[in-house]
């Protein structure tokens, strides 16, 4: 009961305000050397993701090769932060990234809908961790959240947190289904209270996925969590971030809303599959002085 009182006691989000602030910060111009630095920072924050029914061992291996060395002709390109796969691909990914320091993130808990029993969700999580996942991306039960059963969502996150053991836990709120910014703020706090190391916007399977205003609200939550408890928690926007311009807008938001401390792969990630292609093409455009194309950079 006090959980409900706390979540509903959170200040409401000024919808117009947050959207205007997000749009205003998005107009900031980042050029030349700063842009190059932003691109390298963004590459180092990518969770290179493949979550398709058609994923094969071969595809995951080639994804891992790209994660280790995103642009083989330019060894100074930083590696990505992690690869993100389904639980049955974790062992493959772990073997293919061994020794590189790249984290293995696995979605779990009946991703993407989260519609299954507690036992199955926990078994899913344990399987991922035992296979070698160092990070688990769980989905919350949106149905329970929207019908006000906050305790149930909270308990589930706590249980998954326990099943994770040493692995980091990212809690996917699926903001596209939460309808209002107020709900996003409540879900963010709920996930932080329950012990999530990261709060993540979306599964990437629902539209709209990550948006700048939603990410603003979530960044405010981790910032306020830090001021109140001194702990650093992370944010991961996922889905719909496809080009360099978008990525840089998110970096600006992180810097302005949460602070420069958050510009590290420990506290901020991009969940994306095609973003890396554009980052690499833009990086080449900056260095070579002309626009690059898919004949020169892998576009997959």
């Amino acid at each position: 009961m006090s959980l409900r009182r706390f979540l509903h006691g959170l200040p409401g989000v000024d919808q117009v305000g947050v959207e205007q602030r997000a749009a205003g910060l998005a107009t900031r111009s980042i050029k030349k050397a700063s842009k190059l630095q932003a691109i390298d920072t963004a590459i180092g924050l990518v969770d290179l993701t493949t979550l398709e029914g058609a994923d094969t061992v071969g595809k995951v291996r080639s994804l891992c090769a790209k994660a280790r060395r995103p642009d083989p002709e330019r060894p100074d390109v930083p590696r990505v932060a992690a690869v993100c796969v389904y639980p049955d691909m974790v062992a493959t990914a772990a073997a293919a990234t061994a020794g590189s320091g790249i984290d293995i993130a696995s979605v779990a808990t009946a991703f993407p809908s989260g519609r299954s029993t507690r036992e199955i969700k926990l078994a899913d999580t344990r399987f991922a961790v035992e296979s070698g996942a160092t990070e688990v991306d769980m989905v919350i039960d949106r149905g329970a959240f929207l019908s006000g059963q906050y305790g149930r969502v909270f308990d589930e996150i706590v249980a998954v947190r326990e099943a994770c053991g040493q692995a980091h836990l990212k809690v996917i709120l699926e903001t596209g289904e939460l309808v209002t910014y107020d709900n996003v703020r409540r879900a963010s706090w709920l996930a932080l209270l329950a012990g999530g190391d990261f709060i993540k916007t979306s599964t990437g399977k629902v539209s709209p996925a990550a948006t700048l205003p939603v990410t603003h609200v979530m960044l405010q939550a981790v910032r306020d969590w830090h001021t109140q408890t001194g702990e650093h928690r992370g944010v991961k926007p996922a889905g719909g971030i496809r080009n360099t311009k978008d990525a840089i807008r998110y970096l600006v938001a992180v810097n302005e809303v949460a602070g420069p401390d958050w510009l590290t792969s420990k506290l901020f990630r991009f969940g994306a599959s095609s973003l890396l292609n554009d980052l690499l093409m833009q990086r080449r455009a900056q260095l070579e002085g002309h626009y690059s194309g898919p004949d020169y950079v892998t576009v997959d």
Partner: peptide, 9 residues
């Protein structure tokens, strides 16, 4: 020059 050097042309 931008058109001539663009790698996707």
């Amino acid at each position: 020059p931008w058109l001539a050097s663009h790698a996707d042309v």
